[in-house]
Structure formats: structure tokens, C-alpha cells
Design a protein around this nucleic acid. Structure first.
Lengths: 325, 325
DNA sequence: GTGAAAGCGCTAACAC
DNA sequence: GTGTTAGCGCTTTCAC
């Protein structure tokens, strides 16, 4: 099927393409009769304006890229759903990129921005050292990830979250609390969770032990690390996991090691995403304000797109009580 | 942003735009020297080809739309992640649309296709009666959703799944099995789950009772329905939920009604998505081959984009044993 | 009120 | 081997 274009409509209506374009965009002075004629011609030909031609002229695609490790995860799934909703309201459509297991992908999505295929980017992937981020001040906002000086970060208050979680375990009477987090080299603000944990156990004269678990590694590998934790530290009676799925793996590992949760080991997670709350309501966790983070990120991106300067934002977290800690 | 265009590169290199374009696309005969010069000019000017201009010429955006109720769900999250991965391998980027709570959105994403902003569409949303689907044979593939005659459907074997689930409850000795599913008006093949259930309980001379739960309604509403089930049918000793989150709600409701799971009531779910398996491993469920469904859907779409005719595909399901049934 | 024409940035006949 | 030029489909000065 050959596409009907502006010119076809113009010919049919007996006017110029300019006029049809004006009718289409409701711009300029037009006689009622002309509008009528043009509309009729558009109907008859079943005309659809070509979005790409418009984009070329406008130098704007109304597309925003979302680059996170994977949408198949309670936290990122909720976050991306919220981002999509907020951006949709502003007239943007969303290009989804899952960069887990494929570091080059993040760079590819950055190329979309550089090539003018998308107008902006919201990133939260974990790949390090992508040159182009530093080049210039592009319309990019980051969530829970430090990318470069120029790029504003939206994050929850990870330090307080780390303290809250640790405090809960201390209140539970835990004496040997182990934390898991990303490798310390990762440029993510959730290293602050670790700082909160370490400070607090220090204050209580306890040993600080953090096992590093890369977010992007497969679940079997993660499970193996938790198994190892209980081998290395049979005395462990409290686990502060850096996310809820890890908390789940910790509980599985504890049980496999013959320990009861919460009687022998308390476990507290992090994130508190809606589908985790639904599927695993017993989990005690620190909840990030995901919807709010999405909203703020979109606000910041909108300002960046309007060439306004913005700064990073930190949002509060709260403890969601369950039965695991 | 990308102020530098082909012509600038051409001038700098002292050649024509055609030559630069050829270098860019590695097409036609070019002297080594010219290639060298052009590459250098591109470097010096930090040239980025404009993707939209290319799209306009090619009449192709390499973008595929994904329209599902919400990505914030274990099943759709995994499905969309798989779809994105498969499409990425083929050079497509993905536009994500979450149509839950907003029926107009699905139509909007269809407009993107009609407007030439995306090349194809994979849909699994639940909104009824969208005219445009019937118009013509567009490059659209549907997953677990009957849209129109022209559009191929990828689905798991819902009928067998329904029988498998029901059989499991019968094997458990259940006498009063209740099923939940979408309203029967919904044009989704998972009504076949209901058929499988109904046939099997009929064969056993039992009463068939299906409660209708719209996928898109809020969790509180769904929870209220499950509560009602145990009020209406205190004798109920088996629940076959049409998805895993509903199974979770069923279990919650059973416990609130003072029943133990699985001692007093057995519950079996449906979907078996990876994050459900992770967060709620105890659940007995029917697993859909999500990765395979994504792969087949992308294959079909690719063929539709190449104007080949395709037909619908049904894939097998399997029972994942847990402790809830 | 309406139209002619010049782009937006790129590609591919078609020439030479 | 390389260049000229006519589009891809739309919007918008600038005339009339």
C-alpha cells in the first residue's frame, strides 16, 4: 500500500499542501469552507500524517530512552512502569533498553540519543566507564546510579536506609549482622547503604562483614554466595540484603543451612516494590519511594530538555515491617 | 544538537555528500584515500548521522511497539524483557506501552504504527473493540489475546493447562474446586483454561464455579473477591487461579478465613514467571514457556514485516510442583 | 486566506 | 571513482 501523503489530500481538496498542513495543525487563518473540504479529503483518503517527516523537521521525536539492567525485576519493573506513565502524560513515548548481560547495549542506547532518534535518556544501568556520558551536557537523568558530574541523580536516601535496616536487626537482638551489596567499585549510590550499615555496627562494637554480589550475575551464583555466607559464618544471626530478591535468596540459604527465619536468623531486604509486597508480603524491608523517584526523574528530564539546569535529588525511605525481621 | 551534517563533512573532506554517504554505508567503489579523508573529517567534526533523516528515506524506523497491560507484573515483565532481547538481536528497538487503566493508550500505540513511527506491534493488552485492528493486514502479532482474524496469536496451550491444574487438585482429593478467570466476554485464549477446568470437573460430576476477575482491576478489588469466595463457599477446598498473583491473593484470603494452605485448601496458580518462582517458590503452578512465546512472537512479526503470511502458534505448558497444591 | 518554495538530513538513481 | 540531483513527507517563512 502506497502511503497517502499531504499532496494527495491537497489535490483531492483542490488546495495547496500548505493549506492542508495548516488544517492539520490548526494554525493560521483558514476559511470554514476550506477546513471542511480538507477534512473531507483526509477522511476519504484515510490520511495519516507521517510522524518521521514531522520529526525530521521538528528535530524532536518525543521518544525517551529507559536503560536499566532488566525490566524483569520487581524494582525496575515498577520503576519503568511509573516512568512510562509519567512520560506518556507529557506526550513522550518510551524506548526500553535492558542492558543486563550486555554492556554494549547501554552504549547503543546512548547512540540513539546522539543520533537524534530519542530526545532524552533515563538511565540506571550498572555498566561502568562509558565515554560519551562525559562529552557534553546531554538531556540525561540517572536513577540510583552515578554516571558523571554533569548528570543529575535521583536516589532514595540510601544512607538512612542502611541505618534503618541495620537498626531493625539490632533491635531484634542480632549480634552478627552480615550485609550484601554491589562490589564497592560500582558507581551506585546504594554503596551508601553499606556505609549506613558499617557505621552502625561499628558504633555497637560489632564486626562489619559485607559480601559483594553483582546485580547482574545469575541467581544461581547469588544463591551460592548466600550458601557460602552461612558456611563462613555459622554464627550469623542477621542479614541485611541490598535488595528484596537477595533477601529471598538469603532466607532460602538460611533454611537450607538448617536455620529458621526469623527465630535463628533475621533477614531484612531493600526496595519494597509492589509486586514483591504482593508475592512475598512477609518480608521485612526498606521501601524506596519508587513512584516518587520516577516522578522526580521525569521532572528533571523535562527541565534538562528545556535546557534548564537541575541538581540531584534524594528522597526518603521507610521501613515496612514483616515477619522476617 | 547534532548540528554537524553530511554536507559539513563533505566540505571538510573536499568531496561530495554522496561520497560521504557511501563511506558511511560502505557502499560502492571508493578509493582508500577518499575513505581515509572522509573518516578523518567525520572524526574532526564529531559527526553523528541523523537517524530520523535516514528513517524518512528508508520508510522504516527499526522500532517495534510492545503493548501490554503493565510491565510491572512477573509475567509481562519477563515476557517484555525476552521480547526486547530477541528484537534487539534483530536490530530493532522497542517502544513500551502499558495500557492498563487507560484503554485509549492501546489505540495511541496503534497510531504510532499507522503514522509510521514504529514498524510493527506486539500486543497483549486487554482492551476490546479497537477498530483499526480490523482495517488491514498490518504487521501485528498478538500474545495470549485474540484481536482480529488477520492477526496471528501466540499462546500457550491453555486448554491443557486448565486440565493439568484441575487434575492436580483432583489428585489432591479436592471436592469443591473453584476457578477464577477473566470475564467471559474477554477475547483472550485463556478462557480455554476455564474450558479445561469446567470439562474436567464435569467429568467428575462436580460443580463448576468460576469467579470472574478482571486483570486490570486493583489488587484490593481482587482481594475482596477472594474473600467473598470463602464466604460464599466455605466448603471450597481447591482453588485454580488464572494467574500467580491471584493465587497469592487466594492464599491470603484462605488464611484470613481461618483455613490452612494446603491442609484445608489447595491452591494452584498459572504463569510460573521467573520472578514469581524466585519470590514465591512454594507455589504450585502451571508454567507458560515465556521465553519461547517471545521468540515465536518475534519470528512471526519478522515474517509479517517481510510480508509473509503466518498462522497462530500454540506452545506447551507444564506443571511446576510446589507445596500449595 | 492561500500558495510557492526552501529546507529538515540523508540516500540512490543516473551521469560523467 | 565521484558528483549532481531528485526525492522521502512535512512545516514554515515570505509573497500575493
Amino acid at each position: 500500500m502506497t502511503r497517502v501523503k499531504l499532496q494527495d489530500v491537497a489535490e483531492r481538496a483542490g488546495v495547496s499542501v500548505t493549506t492542508v498542513s495548516r488544517v492539520l495543525n490548526n494554525r493560521g487563518y483558514l476559511s470554514k469552507q476550506t477546513i471542511q473540504k480538507v477534512h473531507q479529503a483526509m477522511e476519504e483518503l484515510n490520511y495519516r500524517p507521517n510522524a518521521v517527516a514531522r520529526q525530521l523537521f521538528k528535530q524532536k521525536t518525543d521518544l525517551v530512552g529507559l536503560v536499566f539492567p532488566t525490566v524483569n525485576n520487581p524494582f525496575f519493573g515498577e520503576l519503568e512502569a511509573e516512568l512510562e506513565e509519567r512520560l506518556y502524560e507529557l506526550g513522550y513515548r518510551v524506548v526500553m533498553g535492558n542492558s543486563q548481560n550486555n554492556p554494549q547495549k547501554e552504549e547503543q542506547y546512548l547512540q540513539l540519543l546522539l543520533n537524534g532518534q530519542i530526545d532524552g535518556l533515563i538511565v540506571g544501568a550498572h555498566n561502568e566507564g562509558i565515554e560519551a556520558y562525559h562529552n557534553t551536557n546531554l538531556p540525561i537523568v540517572s536513577i540510583e546510579r552515578i554516571v558523571s558530574k554533569q548528570i543529575p541523580v535521583v536516589a532514595a536516601d540510601n544512607y538512612t536506609g542502611g541505618r534503618l535496616a541495620t537498626q531493625r536487626l539490632l533491635d531484634d537482638g542480632c549480634q552478627h549482622i552480615i550485609h550484601t551489596n554491589y562490589p564497592a567499585t560500582s558507581s551506585t549510590p546504594n554503596q551508601e547503604r553499606r556505609r549506613g550499615y558499617e557505621e552502625l555496627v561499628n558504633e555497637h562494637g560489632m564486626e562489619k562483614i559485607t559480601y559483594e554480589i553483582s546485580f547482574d550475575s545469575p541467581n544461581e551464583e547469588k544463591a551460592a554466595i548466600f550458601k557460602q555466607i552461612f558456611i563462613d559464618h555459622p554464627e550469623c544471626d542477621g542479614i541485611f540484603a541490598d535488595n528484596d530478591t537477595n533477601a529471598r535468596l538469603a532466607i532460602n540459604a538460611a533454611r537450607q543451612a538448617g536455620k529458621r527465619v526469623p527465630e535463628d536468623v533475621k533477614v531484612i531486604g531493600y526496595d519494597g516494590a509492589s509486586s514483591t509486597q504482593l508475592l512475598f508480603p512477609d518480608l521485612t524491608t526498606i521501601q524506596q519511594p519508587i513512584a516518587e523517584m520516577a516522578k522526580v526523574a521525569v521532572d528533571l528530564l523535562q527541565k534538562r530538555l528545556a535546557d534548564q539546569s537541575v541538581s540531584s535529588v534524594t528522597l526518603p525511605v521507610k521501613l515496612i515491617p514483616g515477619t522476617t525481621a
